[in-house]
């Protein structure tokens, strides 16, 4: 007998879990993006050992399961003096995991910035800091927003792994419910619903953001057959 009233009964706990999930996801994404951006910038410095180290970091993070990274951080951390509470470890773990992917996304975006736009800024006497902020990052946003949103959607689903190190997020609360009531099916349906909702919201916001950062490209020039933006759009 299916009993979806259980979802109501466990409602407060589930919502609390959902809140923790969003917190971990949001903070993890933020750390991942900031760290990824810094890694991308450091990678531009022409010092070979530095480049090797960053590349090795990215390869290792992308080449190993998130679960193992999380265990290493949470259980292995104390042996090197890094003692973190479960939620903090979960957020940091997500951030580190995401940073490797974001670094690659940003690198592709950085390389796709038209060289001429940077040269124009250089020839006007702008500093690298100004050029980065005012020219490169806006141009990068245009080309990388879809990939960024995609990565953020993927990370929403990686948050379930945090339940394994006892972060009281949605998955954890759901498992508690299932263990206490044996209502496995209802739990699974409930979970699918929550994560689908989250991903849907993320991708909708992403599409909005994309429309916003590319709004200046949406009006093709009436005669602009030879314009740079016409080719950039193609």
């Amino acid at each position: 007998m299916l009993d979806f009233t259980l979802l109501v009964q466990y409602g407060p706990a589930l919502l609390r879990g959902f809140g923790v999930t969003i917190l971990c996801w949001g903070a993890g994404c933020l750390i991942g993006m900031v760290l990824g951006f810094v890694l991308m910038l450091l990678r531009q410095i022409p010092v070979k050992p530095l480049r090797w180290v960053i590349r090795a970091y990215i390869e290792v993070i992308r080449g190993t399961p998130f679960l193992i990274q999380l265990f290493l951080l949470y259980s292995g951390g104390p042996s090197i003096g890094l003692r973190l509470e479960a939620t903090a470890a979960g957020i940091l773990g997500l951030g580190i995991y995401g940073s490797a992917y974001f670094a690659e996304i940003f690198r592709a975006g950085y390389q796709a910035v038209p060289k001429g736009q940077v040269e124009a800024a250089l020839s006007l006497g702008m500093s690298y800091g100004s050029i980065l902020r005012r020219v490169i990052v806006p141009a990068m946003l245009v080309s990388t927003i879809p990939a960024i949103v995609n990565m953020m959607a993927i990370l929403t689903k990686e948050t379930v792994v945090l339940s394994i190190i006892t972060v009281p997020e949605l998955m954890y609360e759901m498992q508690t419910m299932a263990a206490e009531t044996f209502a496995t099916f209802e739990t699974i349906v409930g979970m699918a619903l929550f994560y689908w909702l989250l991903v849907e919201v993320v991708s909708r916001l992403g599409r909005r953001l994309e429309a916003r950062v590319t709004r200046f490209l949406t009006h093709a020039s009436p005669q602009g057959s030879s314009t740079q933006t016409a080719t950039a759009r193609a």
Binding site: E119, V135, A232
Partner: peptide, 20 residues
């Protein structure tokens, strides 16, 4: 940069910043 600010350059591909 100090040298370049007195020297303007106009490019074949215009190189305007499309987001401005």
């Amino acid at each position: 940069r100090d040298l370049r600010r007195n020297v303007g350059m106009v490019f074949q591909q215009f190189n305007l910043w499309p987001h401005m």
